[in-house]
Design a binder for these strands. Structure first.
Length: 444
RNA sequence: GGAGGAGUGGCCGAGUGGUCGAAGGCAGCGGUUUUGAAAACCGCCGUAGGGGUGACUCUACCGGGGGUUCGAAUCCCUCCUCCUCCGCCA
């Protein structure tokens, strides 16, 4: 944790007062995720009461101390009265400190509990116990029919000489890929195509953020403290440095935290940012899943979309953002569907999430290529991102949204698989041809 | 890597132990004046957390954390960030 920036080591993800005042409602909403999530609430009410009691007690003592201290300022320092006063105040001062210490302890305990409680699902999120309960919202396009057995990208790519998994393993181990020739160009074409679309047509501001981030930044968006095992942590080159740097797992982290600790002008909302970055994930818990090919890599490129808006706009903004991501797939002519994640599959910080899933003919399955979430005020509370409509009015927490627009590697996979032809070549989607310079990929 | 300097409210900036939540200025808001505008003058103008139905009131916060003290923006420790000079480097 970075002690230079944050006041508290663990930021609560929920508004204590709201949780305590609406305990039953909050519990019911959490129970839609799981019983375990709802159980986390049990100690909250008592701790909140204790906290309140201690605050009142501390303030009373503090007020008394302050009054007495002010009187001392007017006394003759060498006088007998001064010495007596000082002695009696010493006791009072100690009492204040004791209560303050107790208060800090309770506050810390309360905050760390609140930090582990996931966000409350929106009423429109379907109930469910597993990803099988996700609801298909719509399907775009149709699966192409092939007069041959469609191959997987991890066969198509190496046969064309544009993807090289063996040499990647030599260099970096499993879950990496080397793209060669037209493969590398396809990657770059996709990045440019996506960035152009979002900046020129969808109004996003392009950002090129750092790829290494401090732990505090990861707290802001909720990757820490719960998901440390998913991250690559760097070693300190400078032993003097007190904080750790992590490889960013997604540009959501940097884009959302851009306005950490700021009060934005309400007139500037909604803010829309997009960024192309590599993303790094340890995939610690996914042994044996998607081991072949580039579906699940330690390093992959992604164009990320982030929107920062007023609370009343966030549900509309989720539709906007999701449409922006879908537009990429549609321009590329890729068959996909949109699903609304059910309560069981919803991410930790999300109020509501749509996944976009692209069709992979080799697997005859839809695979996730984008995840678009409304995080409500969850991240804003941690990262202290607020806005003000009018001068003098109280600042309010913004709502934050993020989504992939899209995961570049998986898009490349989809193009190879959906565009493959009997002779092993791959048709380049029309929208991409200006960026590629060719209509068909026939080799590296 | 070596040597120094600095961080105060939206911005600038004063303040080295008590009456300082903090002078002064700029920006902003309201008002007086004016045919209108400008100028001038007057007032307002940080965030968070308690208590109260409420008018209101209390507490905390001068980069973060900790310490010294009856009392800290001010003294000490530590971390963060920024700047200057030298060296190295894409």
């Amino acid at each position: 944790m970075d002690p230079g920036r944050r006041r508290d080591y663990v930021q609560p993800m929920h508004d204590v007062r709201y949780v305590v005042d609406n305990l039953d409602e909050v519990r019911a909403r959490l129970a839609r995720r799981s019983d375990e999530a709802a159980k986390l609430l049990d100690p909250v009410s008592d701790l909140a009461g204790e906290r309140r009691r201690l605050i009142a007690a501390a303030q009373e003592k503090q007020a008394a101390r302050n009054t007495a201290s002010k009187e001392m300022a007017g006394l003759d320092k060498s006088s007998e009265a001064f010495a007596q006063r000082r002695a009696s105040l010493k006791t009072l001062s100690q009492e204040v400190k004791d209560i303050e210490r107790e208060q800090t302890e309770v506050q810390t305990k309360l905050d760390s509990i609140l930090a582990t409680i996931p966000n409350l699902p929106d009423p429109s999120v379907p109930d469910g116990v597993s990803e099988d309960d996700n609801a298909v919202v719509h399907v775009w396009g149709e699966p192409k029919s092939y007069d041959f057995e469609p191959k997987a990208h991890f066969d198509i790519g190496p046969e064309l000489g544009i993807l090289d998994f063996e040499r990647a393993a030599k260099l970096s181990g499993p879950r990496f890929v080397v793209e060669v020739g037209m493969g590398a160009r396809l990657e770059r074409a996709l990045i440019n195509f996506m960035l152009d679309l979002h900046t020129k047509e969808h109004g996003y501001t392009e950002v090129a953020p750092p790829y290494l981030v401090k732990d505090t930044t990861l707290y802001g968006t909720g990757q820490l403290p719960k998901f440390e095992e998913d991250l690559f942590k760097t070693r300190k080159s400078d032993p003097e440095r007190s904080y750790d740097l992590y490889l960013s797992p997604t540009a959501e982290v940097t884009l959302t935290n851009l306005h950490q600790d700021e009060i934005l002008d309400g007139a500037d909302l909604t803010r829309a940012y997009c960024a192309f970055t590599p993303c790094f994930r340890s995939e610690a818990g996914s042994h044996g899943r998607d081991v072949r090919g580039m579906i699940r890599q330690h390093q992959f490129n992604k164009v990320e979309l982030v929107r920062v808006c007023r609370p009343e706009d966030s549900m509309d903004e989720l539709e906007n953002l999701t449409r922006h991501a879908e537009t990429v797939l549609e321009r590329l002519g890729l068959h996909y569907r949109r699903v609304a994640l059910c309560t069981a599959d919803l991410g930790f910080g999300a109020v509501k999430t749509y996944d976009l899933e692209v069709w992979l003919p080799s697997q005859e399955k839809f695979r996730e290529i984008s995840s678009c979430s409304n995080c409500g005020d969850f991240q804003a509370r941690r990262a202290k991102i607020r806005y003000r409509t009018e001068k003098g009015k109280k600042p309010q927490l913004v709502h934050t949204l993020n989504g992939s627009g899209l995961a570049v590697g998986r898009t490349l996979v989809a193009i190879l698989e959906q565009g493959q032809r009997a002779d092993g070549s791959v048709e380049v989607p029309e929208a991409l041809r200006p960026f590629m310079g060719v209509d068909v990929i026939t080799g590296a």
